[in-house]
Simulated scan of single mutants.
Amino acid sequence: MSKTRSDNKSDKVSPDLDTPTDIPQAAVGKISTALNTLVADAFALYLKTKNFHWHVSGRHFHDYHLMLDQQSDAIFATTDQLAERVRKLGGITVRSIGQIAKLQTIQDNDENYVPPREMLRELMEDNKHMAAAMRKAHKLCDDNEDSGTAGLLETFIDETERRTWFLFEASRQEGSNAA
């Protein structure tokens, strides 16, 4: 029986893609898995943020539209750096939208209409989820002495926390001290 592309699934790196590293192969596998999930979640969060950017409406349209555009650009920028980090370690990174769909933990939102405040709150929660996943991956990197990935994640955690903060503030009820 011949193998098709969908049948040819292997976690082994082709000798042509075998990047040298001093990090043990078992650690490369664990870190690559964590980073690939982050890549998938970043793509999912990017597209959700763009979706909300395209479909936001209401009296704060201009401000929300611009904020979501800036945030989506920042999220998208993380995908390449995370995927390239996987390759620097000698791992295999995501190859398709289908693989992203299998790995993502950020839920899509395909609703025809989402009120602006709900958009912001949902994105805030998704960014909090991303920050928590990045911290977990950071710990894995620390445990395996992968300071390069840990340093990259520290920057992305800070950026994700900033997005969370902005979404929180933008989604607060006017005249209210509480969220």
Rank of each mutant, 00 (worst) to 15 (best):
T49A: 00
A44N: 06
T19Q: 10
L47K: 05
L45S: 06
K102S: 13
R162G: 09
A74I: 11
T155M: 07
R5N: 10
T21Q: 04
D143Q: 12
T105I: 04
F43S: 03
K48F: 04
T79Q: 10
E154C: 08
K102A: 11
N8F: 15
T33M: 11
W54I: 10
A137K: 02
R5A: 13
S171N: 07
A150G: 08
P116W: 02
Y113E: 10
S10M: 03
D110Q: 13
R121V: 11
S32N: 08
F61G: 01
Q107L: 11
R85S: 03
R87N: 09
I92C: 02
P115G: 04
A101H: 01
T78C: 12
K12I: 11
I157F: 03
H62D: 01
I23K: 13
Y64N: 02
H65F: 10
D11W: 10
E161Q: 13
H65S: 06
H65P: 12
D142H: 10
D80P: 00
D41C: 06
V86N: 05
L89D: 00
H55C: 09
H65D: 09
V86C: 08
S14A: 13
A131S: 15
E118I: 09
E118S: 12
D41G: 10
E111P: 00
D73M: 09
L140K: 08
H138Y: 12
N127W: 00
P15N: 11
A42T: 14
R95N: 05
A26I: 04
T149C: 08
A178D: 15
A170R: 01
E169K: 06
L153D: 02
A178C: 08
T79A: 15
D146E: 13
G175F: 09
L45V: 10
D146Y: 01
V114I: 10
H60M: 08
F156C: 03
H53M: 09
Q81W: 07
C141E: 03
S57Q: 13
R121W: 00
K9S: 10
L45A: 08
N177M: 08
S32Q: 03
M134Y: 04
K128G: 11
F166T: 09
L103I: 05
A44D: 06
N8K: 15
D110T: 14
A133I: 02
S147H: 14
D108N: 14
S171W: 00
T155Y: 06
I97K: 03
F43E: 05
L45E: 02
Q70C: 03
N109C: 10
L153F: 05
K12G: 06
D110A: 14
F168R: 00
A34S: 13
K128E: 14
E84T: 12
L123G: 03
A26R: 09
Y64W: 06
Q173H: 15
R135M: 14
V94L: 04
H60Y: 12
E154V: 11
N36I: 05
I100Y: 11
L89H: 00
P20N: 06
D142P: 01
L103N: 05
W165L: 09
H53N: 07
L103D: 04
F43H: 13
S72H: 12
E169M: 13
M119Q: 11
A150W: 01
G29R: 12
A132G: 09
